[in-house]
Nucleic acid binder design. Structure first.
Lengths: 110, 110
DNA sequence: TGGCCATTTGCCTATATTGCCAAATGTTTT
DNA sequence: AAAACATTTGGCAATATAGGCAAATGGCCA
């Protein structure tokens, strides 16, 4: 893999990494329907506000969300909504895995 | 977030995590055009074969690829091809980030 | 101004990930 | 059977990630 290719996949992996955490996937999902402030998201997830803030800063650094300060609150929203569409394919992977496990069990039971 | 929701997002994150590494994204990309054995992928990426094998086992455990042993070689192929489509959106994120940085630079230069 | 709330940042510990080497396993060939 | 090759696995050290607490910052209101 040459230097140029490596840089390309490093950049892509940085974006994927930002999404590769349950709380951050939950955040992206929430922001898909409406913008939210940090304290709302922290409550919804059930973590410390500082933890939620850090997850949001990771998503922001990756270019996935954007923030807007209004009064004393910071509202986050999706910057690139197509990430929401990842979940259909992820669910297909999960479904397919579940079916495979089921098939193996029935194989064993024979 | 209730137990059920947490389990859902944990499962999704496990799949995303499997994809969140430059070598593994490269592998998925390669397998998009044709199946490959471990040694080919190791050479293409430029890592030890044991390293490539571990990456492949992570992708396999996530349900993204499948393997088939033929002779002394193990050929891996994409099990769920829709993951290839993630890259368009990831590129959109990267492009948008690049444009934002450019805009900020021009702002500063004023 | 003082107090309260929302947010961010620093710090710290626990845990997870990465990638190499070496060893174990299985396959093909001579 | 031995040598050669492909793959996987275990061990290990370096590095990265996660999340809570406490402190710092900034806005709002009495």
């Amino acid at each position: 893999m040459d230097q140029r290719t490596r840089a390309l996949f490093d950049a892509r992996a940085r974006v994927m990494k930002a999404l590769a955490h349950p709380s951050r996937l939950f955040i992206v999902n929430e922001l898909g329907s409406k913008e939210r402030c940090v304290c709302e998201l922290a409550k919804l997830i059930g973590v410390d506000m500082s933890t939620a803030s850090k997850h949001l800063s990771i998503l922001k650094a990756a270019g996935i969300v954007q923030d807007e300060k209004r009064g004393s609150q910071v509202y986050y929203s999706l910057r690139i909504p197509c990430v929401l569409k990842f979940m259909d394919c992820v669910e297909a992977v999960l479904k397919s895995s579940a079916e495979k496990i089921l098939a193996l069990q029935q194989e064993t039971a024979k």
